[in-house]
Simulated assay, not measured.
Amino acid sequence: MSVGIEIRPDDLSGADTRQLIAAHLAGMYETSPPESVHALDIDGLRHPSITFWSAWIGDDLAGIGALKSIDAERGEVKSMRVHDRFRGGGVGRAILRHIVAVARERGMRSLWLETGSPDDFVPAQRLYESEGFVRCDPFDGYADDPFSVFMTRAL
């Protein structure tokens, strides 16, 4: 994990967290048609199957990420977003590794995710690939979509 990044559970009530979620959703709608946006809003992220974290560098919110329990053995990475000011500094990798570690602690055997296919998502795709994720078919109710890339990784 990168030095100086603190990842902690987040109850989604803080203004900084809410603003980053709003920016995340706005970015998804700028790059994909509405039917292809699978990012969750604050209410969606409060679902009991989801654990949500925020990453902080000092007093600054650097990023967010969540783990959704699909079932006892499978989890889904949700709402990964790094604040623009902190991109390229290892925040996304730290959050992803935290999610992987928690999934393992919970006894999950695999992680899954959906990310975008447009060029804006290539850095995210590369991050996931560098952490052992491979492309796969749609999962858990997702449909084939030209704006989506589906990935999985065994734990």
Score class of each variant (00 low, 15 high):
residue 115 T to P: 05
residue 149 V to M: 08
residue 82 V to K: 05
residue 142 Y to Q: 08
residue 26 A to I: 08
residue 151 M to A: 04
residue 24 H to L: 09
residue 111 L to D: 02
residue 87 R to D: 11
residue 145 D to W: 04
residue 147 F to H: 10
residue 5 I to A: 04
residue 72 A to I: 10
residue 62 A to R: 07
residue 7 I to W: 00
residue 142 Y to G: 02
residue 64 I to S: 00
residue 143 A to I: 05
residue 24 H to R: 07
residue 7 I to S: 02
residue 127 L to Q: 04
residue 15 A to D: 11
residue 140 D to H: 12
residue 56 W to G: 04
residue 75 G to L: 10
residue 23 A to D: 15
residue 112 W to A: 00
residue 19 Q to Y: 04
residue 37 V to K: 10
residue 89 G to T: 13
residue 119 D to M: 12
residue 11 D to T: 04
residue 26 A to N: 03
residue 7 I to L: 13
residue 85 R to G: 11
residue 53 W to G: 01
residue 83 H to T: 13
residue 144 D to W: 15
residue 7 I to M: 02
residue 112 W to M: 01
residue 106 R to M: 08
residue 41 D to G: 13
residue 61 L to V: 15
residue 3 V to P: 03
residue 82 V to P: 09
residue 69 S to I: 06
residue 95 I to H: 00
residue 43 D to N: 14
residue 131 E to A: 03
residue 66 A to F: 03
residue 125 Q to R: 15
residue 132 G to V: 08
residue 91 V to P: 07
residue 120 D to A: 11
residue 116 G to Y: 06
residue 6 E to Y: 06
residue 42 I to A: 01
residue 23 A to N: 12
residue 131 E to Q: 11
residue 41 D to C: 05
residue 63 G to E: 03
residue 23 A to Y: 10
residue 113 L to Y: 08
residue 76 E to P: 06
residue 146 P to F: 07
residue 46 R to L: 05
residue 129 E to L: 00
residue 18 R to W: 03
residue 153 R to A: 06
residue 42 I to D: 14
residue 37 V to C: 05
residue 64 I to F: 01
residue 12 L to W: 06
residue 140 D to G: 09
residue 74 R to K: 13
residue 19 Q to R: 14
residue 151 M to W: 05
residue 151 M to S: 00
residue 16 D to F: 03
residue 5 I to L: 11
residue 16 D to H: 10
residue 82 V to M: 02
residue 93 R to E: 10
residue 148 S to V: 08
residue 144 D to G: 08
residue 76 E to M: 00
residue 89 G to Q: 15
residue 12 L to E: 11
residue 67 L to W: 00
residue 13 S to P: 08
residue 80 M to A: 13
residue 119 D to F: 08
residue 55 A to R: 12
residue 119 D to V: 13
residue 153 R to H: 10
residue 97 R to F: 01
residue 97 R to D: 08
residue 31 T to M: 00
residue 30 E to N: 15
residue 66 A to G: 01
residue 96 L to W: 10
residue 125 Q to M: 13
residue 63 G to T: 12
residue 106 R to F: 04
residue 151 M to R: 11
residue 132 G to M: 01
residue 54 S to K: 05
residue 94 A to E: 15
residue 84 D to Q: 14
residue 1 M to Q: 10
residue 104 R to A: 14
residue 16 D to L: 05
residue 66 A to N: 08
residue 134 V to L: 02
residue 118 P to I: 04
residue 90 G to W: 07
residue 37 V to N: 09
residue 105 E to T: 15
residue 79 S to I: 09
residue 40 L to G: 15
residue 9 P to A: 10
residue 54 S to H: 04
residue 2 S to A: 03
residue 65 G to S: 01
residue 144 D to V: 14
residue 9 P to Q: 13
residue 54 S to I: 02
residue 5 I to V: 13
residue 100 V to T: 14
residue 140 D to N: 14
residue 50 I to A: 01
residue 33 P to A: 03
residue 116 G to T: 09
residue 57 I to H: 11
residue 136 C to E: 09
